[in-house]
């Protein structure tokens, strides 16, 4: 039981880290950029927040299958495949929310940054650091989607006992076995887990705001 919880956390936290690693800088850059097509990209990335998990699962499945382009790595039906699927799924969420969080801040800072002729890297850094609390909320939203997701991980993970079985796929399995009470109990644990992770992170967030001041 607890190894299933641990696996869920490991997979979803890894996916959140990977997605955030790419999405935060790109999202900030999108908020800064003044190039043509920027609005289209932003609109497109927010639309991707509505990506259906099963479609993501199916696409990753076809990529990782032995008959697919990345088949040689033998990643299908492994936790790695589940991490990839969740990363792809939550990348647009973190990206779009980061862009939205950074945009107003960037407007305030632009003249100041222009006046000191700041480099693009310095701008990225200062915007990410100063918008960190709102970006943090974006990352949390991504994590919430990842841990609660079942459609993609059941396709690419295969729901293998002791290997790729996570909380949500266990709930699906127990429901199909007619163990409705057990499935519901697992659901409650999942919600409590999400509440737990979120409250820990919020405590960090408010501690940070208290000691480092709020910039926005």
């Amino acid at each position: 039981m607890w190894d299933i919880v641990a696996l869920s956390l490991r997979i979803s936290l890894s996916a959140t880290l990977i997605a955030a690693f790419f999405a935060i800088p790109i999202g900030t850059a999108l908020a800064m950029g003044r190039f043509t097509g920027r609005k289209v990209i932003i609109m497109f990335s927010s639309s991707l927040m509505a990506l259906p998990p099963v479609v993501v699962g199916l696409a990753i499945y076809l990529l990782l299958s032995r008959s697919g382009p990345l088949g040689e790595y033998g990643l299908l039906f492994t936790p790695t495949a589940m991490i990839i699927a969740q990363s792809v799924l939550i990348f647009p969420i973190i990206l779009a929310l980061t862009t939205e969080a950074v945009s107003p801040l960037e407007k305030n800072y632009r003249r100041l940054l222009n006046s000191v002729d700041a480099s693009i890297w310095f701008r990225l850094k200062i915007l990410i650091v100063d918008a960190r609390f709102s970006i943090f909320t974006a990352v949390l939203a991504g994590f919430g989607r990842a841990i609660a997701e079942v459609g993609a991980v059941i396709i690419v993970g295969g729901n293998i006992a002791g290997s790729t079985r996570v909380m949500t796929t266990t709930i699906a399995l127990e429901t199909s076995k007619g163990n409705l009470e057990l499935a519901l109990a697992l659901g409650i644990i999942l919600v409590m887990l999400a509440v737990g992770v979120n409250s820990v992170m919020h405590i960090f967030k408010s501690l940070g705001q208290k000691y480092h001041g709020v910039l926005r």
Binding site: L17, I18, Y73, L75, T78, P79, T80, I160, K177
Partner: peptide, 29 residues
């Protein structure tokens, strides 16, 4: 990117003594 995923997943895909059995829900359930 694949390498990064594998690192984070810390799943070793070396030759383990295991096999994948594709089967039916009726036997599993």
């Amino acid at each position: 990117i694949i390498f990064l995923f594998m690192m984070l997943a810390s799943s070793v895909n070396a030759e383990r003594r295991e096999l994948i059995l594709s089967s039916t829900t009726s036997t599993q359930n």
